[in-house]
Design a protein around this nucleic acid. Structure first.
Lengths: 356, 356
DNA sequence: GACTGGAGTGAATGCGCAGTCATATAATAG
DNA sequence: CTATTATATGACTGCGCATTCACTCCAGTC
């Protein structure tokens, strides 16, 4: 074949990658033809395409996405803003986004933790980002500022597992209020009397909706209003809240936590910190469906997000927005699924009740 | 100022972003001057730079990284291959990489989980990736194939927390053998007699080196060879291994696990599965320094990776390779730090010993 | 048999920028 | 006061591709 370059395919000499012209020359066609061969809906005969692709393969040619982006002024890259990964569901979310976007020919650029919204916007503009996904695992004020800037700059934005009441941005969420109500039904139905809620930062939509769903349903049952403890969405936050709650004389016997990491913190506060038995002395329900909720040491009853469905929906909304259709800003809500484990007594006593 | 466009800065009319020519016109200078103003080491007077930057700010101008990439033929983007995020240290690793690379003006493109190495290479070539980091959180065979292809294509590669004995690739690792030896010293020094090792996939360098360091040191002490159980690097892997070990008549009283997730699985197998007390009945030591090792319910003694140092070293090696200096393929080893908690008895009885 | 039209292809252009080269001005020397 | 050199700037080209436009070719038409 060609002259042998050390460790190189066909003729990729020294850091020089084949261009469409190289392929054109080899296939004895024009550069236009090469371009068409790699463009899905281009006007080209099957035989021509086949010939070009053969030559391309021989040279190890891949279209240069940079050059393509320059002419089309779209990068086919989507940015993801997801710093502060404290919630263990996000690795899976990230992986799922990556997979789904790839199947639509998109790549993911990871936006680093920036100081302010301008830095983020600069990054997006520089790389001609086609769209942005912001997950709840990011500082609220910063997320909002970034979303606002991007919208002003005409970059489509979709929020994942979060929404802003005062800013019209497309979003995909769990039906958090319904999840909270479900927790209330279970805990009340199991005969509990003294309820508590352990939440996260009070301005986040997950905190607000999960609490509201829980408290509203309790009120509908005529139960006493739940105690509330809040803190960051971390193990320590849940542990601290649990320690405070269990130290009270009117110690709660049923706790709903705004997420699983908080719940595991509360669980440890009960068992290790206060020597309580779960669910004999206290029932605890979490939210999210984090992997470690299933671990034998935790065995946490929780309301699991349908993460795959949520990601798919987010991708769909984003791609549609990129294609120019203005997305509605009404939050899309996807239900959560109750996962019954052993950290909470169930109505009907399907788990060892207090009589033990 | 300029005519008011709805929701637009100065004059960013309809999805049209300002170019260097626009800035040049406004500042009454040439396009070259604009380019120089945004190039760190360019030959330009301070006054000129100031004037250009002022005009750029007024237009909301950001250099188009795509166009820049086309002329410089480097994208300033680094790819990260890290699918299968099962180990909870990786979210932090990802965040740290992102942060560190950004401080060097680099962005991260997340490589999705691909079917084969060719897909990955295609992605790298299309986007003119400057370099690649492969973490241990990715399938071994695929990682190796990708690394091989990239090297052949002239793309610098650095492995994080992994190395290949039979392929010359730069890598940054924990000093795993030393960590294993440390675990052996502690467990032997605390008076344990029946040792076991719970590992991951047998061909991974972390498994091999951590086991070897452990077993070699035990042998040096004249102790019996440890029992070995292996499985995937998951909670279930550790739990299953633990259940098997504790069911034996010669049940081990000291277990070293190749990582923290395995160790937590083993811990739960001991406590929940077999009703054993830790560390009265068995000492367990993990590896990595995962966040949940610190949780009260686990309280796991472990050997913590110096993740920040490892990431910084990886970035340094990678950037040097991108700048053309061939990196050595000898693994860089960074020591791990013993974190003493309550899952293992310590030499000298600094924790409640078997006498309880 | 000249004419129309569809199908396929090639030539040419520009995307936005970095860098090279040439030029104009200011500073220094002789 | 001219010759020489720093210093700073502008004109221009090309990176690799998508795309537009013009063109060729050939089947069908009357």
């Amino acid at each position: 074949m060609a002259k042998a370059g050390p460790g190189a395919k066909a003729n990729a000499p020294r850091g020089k990658r084949a261009t469409s012209y190289d392929v054109a020359r080899l296939a004895a066609v024009s550069q236009s033809a090469v371009s068409r061969a790699f463009t899905p809906d281009a006007y080209i005969s099957p035989s021509m395409r086949k010939k070009v692709l053969a030559a391309a393969r021989q040279l190890g040619y891949q279209p240069n996405a940079i050059a393509r982006g320059l002419t089309t002024s779209r990068s086919r890259v989507v940015a993801l803003f997801m710093p502060n990964i404290g919630n263990p569901i996000y690795p899976f979310v990230l992986q799922t986004f990556s997979h789904r976007l790839r199947s639509h020919g998109r790549q993911i650029l990871l936006l680093p933790l920036v100081e302010n919204a301008n830095e983020a916007l600069a990054c997006m503009l520089q790389y001609q980002i086609d769209g942005l996904v912001i997950t709840a695992a990011s500082p609220l004020a910063l997320s909002k500022a970034i979303a606002r800037k991007c919208l002003a700059a005409g970059i489509p934005v979709v929020l994942f597992n979060r929404y802003f009441a005062d800013l019209k941005v497309a979003s995909v969420n769990c039906d958090n209020a319904r999840g909270g109500a479900l927790a209330a039904e279970i805990l009340h139905g199991a005969g509990h009397q003294r309820f508590a809620f352990i939440g996260g930062p009070e301005e986040t939509s997950t905190h607000i909706d999960r609490y509201r769903g829980f408290a509203d349903r309790l009120r509908a049952f005529g139960a006493a209003a739940p105690l509330i403890e809040t803190g960051p969405y971390t193990y320590d936050g849940g542990h601290g809240a649990g320690m405070r709650l269990f130290a009270r004389r009117d110690r709660p016997d049923a706790i709903f936590c705004a997420n699983d990491v908080l719940a595991i913190g509360a669980l440890d506060a009960a068992r290790v910190g206060h020597g309580l038995q779960v669910p004999r002395d206290v029932s605890i329900i979490g939210f999210d469906g984090a992997p470690m909720a299933a671990w034998a040491g935790n065995d946490l009853t929780t309301i699991a997000l349908r993460l795959v469905a949520m990601v798919e929906s987010t991708v769909e909304v984003l791609l549609r927005a990129i294609d120019g259709q203005r997305a509605g800003s009404e939050p899309i809500r996807i239900p959560g699924d109750l996962v019954i484990r052993k950290s909470a007594r169930m109505p009907g006593g399907s788990l060892p009740a207090a009589s033990t």
